[in-house]
Nucleic acid binder design. Structure first.
Lengths: 145, 145
DNA sequence: GTGGCTGCAAATCATTTGCATATAC
DNA sequence: GTATATGCAAATGATTTGCAGCCAC
């Protein structure tokens, strides 16, 4: 996504498209992993050395609030962020390398369904296991939790 | 579950069945909500006024480590705990009252399946929406986040 | 211009840890 | 008796917040 596209998407949501927010969105758009706020901070810092961690946190929160970014709380220590793009709402965490992947996790549950009497607005599927890469190069040189 | 049953389950896992841990397990067994560590602390404190919050945290962690309790990180602020009992692995969060319910969320994914090349060890389904109680007594007297 | 941001530092909150004492067996 | 757990207080780490100056429009 180019700067113009990012700027437009920010403006549509009512957020001021500051350099920092543009940088955050572009970074989220460029990675396929799900970075933590600190990952975002470190990455964006290389081009914007003056950005503060608070701005990253505040910016991410603003983006989550308007729905441009989703926040994953699959693990306790630090939230992970994901640019919303109509992708499937499934995530896979590798218990070896601890990476988080998007997956196409099928579910029979639909928005509006009643499950045990509760009305569903959204469904998230979290899968745990060993990722394709770790399965392939299964030599154990992984960082464990 | 009575004290004896709890004691036995603890002993089976190699954990010392202290009064505090028994109290934690009995509390988790007695509630249908998913309490936070602080909820557990406050509840157990009524019968064990000397228990410390650190003991609750350490005890919960020990229980999670041996697999007697599962830890839910569906929300960012505080983990929630759930006595393992072979129940379905689905959870519903009410966006009104913020309660967390167990639900029987069907999924076509099985342990051992490959999803996008990743090998699945476990599946969690998280649903968001409005719970049955809030749907019924829809008067808005809820605490929002 | 002005309101919404940024950036810094201080505050907050959940959780962990060090250590001396107490408990389970 | 000995290993393990408790309880207190202090440490840690992610995230939030107050506030003065800055930027987008």
């Amino acid at each position: 996504m180019n700067d113009r596209g990012v700027t437009d998407r920010l403006r549509e949501t009512g957020l001021v498209p500051t350099l920092q927010r543009i940088a955050i969105v572009k970074y989220l758009d460029s990675v396929d992993i799900h970075p933590t706020a600190d990952d975002v901070f470190r990455a964006v810092s290389t081009r914007h050395p003056t950005i503060s961690k608070a701005t990253v946190y505040n910016g991410l929160r603003a983006l989550v609030d308007v729905g441009l970014v989703s926040e994953l709380t699959i693990e306790k220590d630090a939230a992970r962020y994901d640019l919303c793009g109509g992708k499937p709402h499934g995530h896979f965490r590798c218990c070896r390398c601890r990476r988080l992947y998007d997956v196409d996790a099928p579910t029979p549950i639909r928005t509006g369904d009643l499950v045990d009497g509760h009305q569903v607005a959204s469904v998230s599927t979290y899968l745990y296991g060993v990722c394709a890469e770790c399965l392939a190069g299964d030599r154990g040189e992984r960082r464990h939790a």
